[in-house]
Amino acid sequence: MSLFLLFDWALAIEKIILVSVVFAITLGVAAYSTWGERKVAAFMQDRMGPSRAGWGGILQPIADGVKMFTKEDFMPNQAERWLYILAPGAFMFVAAMTSAVIPWGTELTIFDKPVTLQVADLNIGILYIMGFVSLGVYGIMMGGWASNNKYSLYGAIRASSQMISYELAMGLSVIAVVMMTGTLSLKEMAIQQPGINWNIWYQPLGFLIFFVCALAECNRAPFDLAECETELIGGYHTEYSSMKLGFFLFAEYINMFVSSAVISTVYFGGYNFPGIDPGWLYGFAGPLVLFAKIFFFIFVFMWIRWTLPRFRYDQLMHLGWKSLIPLAILNMLLTGLGVLLFSK
């Protein structure tokens, strides 16, 4: 009748292992992104960056984790207790859930058994990602409101109105890709981009819009008005300390990792790369190539943060509503025309 009657224990164990591995890699990449961010920032500003903990500061994320856990966990007197505790968890949960539909590679043969390197091949994969992106607002809003501090509330309202605005343009740019590929499944999208026949060659404008929106959705500079220190102290997490603050900051890096993975899969061919025939090596090389692409985009995120100054709030709204959305609609129309004229 439905999926649950056909319960397959081997599949369940395989998926549990895959989920654990993906989760561990997500956390690991996010942790080392904090180190990478400091190193990139230091390089851009002609400094050394972290250098004390381990070689080249390689143990810095662990030191940071220990610091976060052992700091005093302070809670404001007038805070809405349960929502205040729930908010960082909700934010982190939503960030970590998004990676479930990303195809990390084709198939690996382990002990003569083909293992699909994707946690869930939903036929609505890209919509699943849009759904969880739109839920990311709640962690921020709950945190900002429950802190009972006007600066936190301002930060939360800024962050959420920004995320709502940029979601629209993001969705419209994704629609163009969906029209072109004729599928909502990320796996199917990856399969349709063999070799170097990537979607970026057909959707350059769509990619640009998607990338700008991804920056805004992650609350990254130049769109980090939610934590604009000069105006808002620290934004929605002003009142947070210890590991609760750590969760908010860490989830931002997870979001960055997942957005880079989505960008690589949707526009840059995912695990595909030119110059190798699909053979046994392909299964191993695919994920490595995907990760190389992901690390490149994480680097671009950092590069932009340490290069561009922050927008003003009205400029942010103008860009979102009056430039990106009309451009995305134009892109959609052009894609429709292209599909009509050149469809296979």
Partner: peptide, 9 residues
């Protein structure tokens, strides 16, 4: 993702 966010807002 959309309607309830506006309510909360």
């Amino acid at each position: 993702g959309a309607i309830m966010v506006l309510f909360l807002f």
